[in-house]
Design a protein around this nucleic acid. Sequence first.
DNA 1: ATTGAAATGTAGGAAAC
DNA 2: GTTTCCTACATTTCAAT
Lengths: 153, 153
Amino acid sequence: MYQPDDTDYEILRLLQRNGELTNKEIAFSIGKSIATIHERVKRLKEEKYIKRTVAILDRKKINKNLIAFSHVLLSDHAFETLNTFEKEVSKFPEVMECFQMTGTFDFILRIATSDMDSYHEFYRHKLAKLPNIATVQSFFVLSETKSDTAYPL
Amino acid sequence: MYQPDDTDYEILRLLQRNGELTNKEIAFSIGKSIATIHERVKRLKEEKYIKRTVAILDRKKINKNLIAFSHVLLSDHAFETLNTFEKEVSKFPEVMECFQMTGTFDFILRIATSDMDSYHEFYRHKLAKLPNIATVQSFFVLSETKSDTAYPL
DNA sequence: ATTGAAATGTAGGAAAC
DNA sequence: GTTTCCTACATTTCAAT
């Protein structure tokens, strides 16, 4: 299996912060040739160290003013119950993230809507209608102190 | 204030999913000229609708196998207490996100580490040493059902 | 605001060292 | 890993609509 070295990690560090850097800029920044960077980046993408490159939008400007974290507990933990929940909840565009968790509930969802009315609409007519939901406890974001997609490397 | 139209939203929708699309590809996909797309994208960046473009890494490949969501309650809510917490917690590279929340605790943190030992290390020697922490309750990700950076548009 | 066309720069591949 | 060369695209600017 492919093991990235220090140079690769330097590149990942940079591209995690700014995916628009050119090979030339990266080469200059870490003191290697353009051809080397070209080769490294190509491999990092082929090997899926870089899953994809995406634009990060300002959610307030696109009217996603309300972010909720919801803790979901299911009524049972049969394989089919978990599977169905995961499959169905993933279809909702409002649900940006869904993680199965350790602890006193089963899933954390990150839900993006424009305001409390839209959240309520989503909750009543989509989330709460899924089968085998025992409880949903929701917490709302008051302010973002830090919001980063980059992992510490 | 600048108000994006349907064409702009089409572009945002596409770039949220794939930030590497060329103007040519976008132009073809939504039936406009390359120069138009160029103009729109430039403005969407200038006006900060697009905050930045980033590479999304495969966290398991870069050894960030443990993601925790931690609920933090502070011992008081004086302006300075909140401020100091936000400032200090943001400095930790393990903390990818920090949100102030409504409800029975004050903050949600998303923490990325390699394993439970490193998490413990972070918790004991960094997080728990911050002043005015009353309680920290942590939940760990078992599996990712959906993990998206794109807002519904 | 949108377009086609021209100039400049970058990507991507291949060669030799 | 670097350097050079090359072709193919992509970006960027601009005059015209």
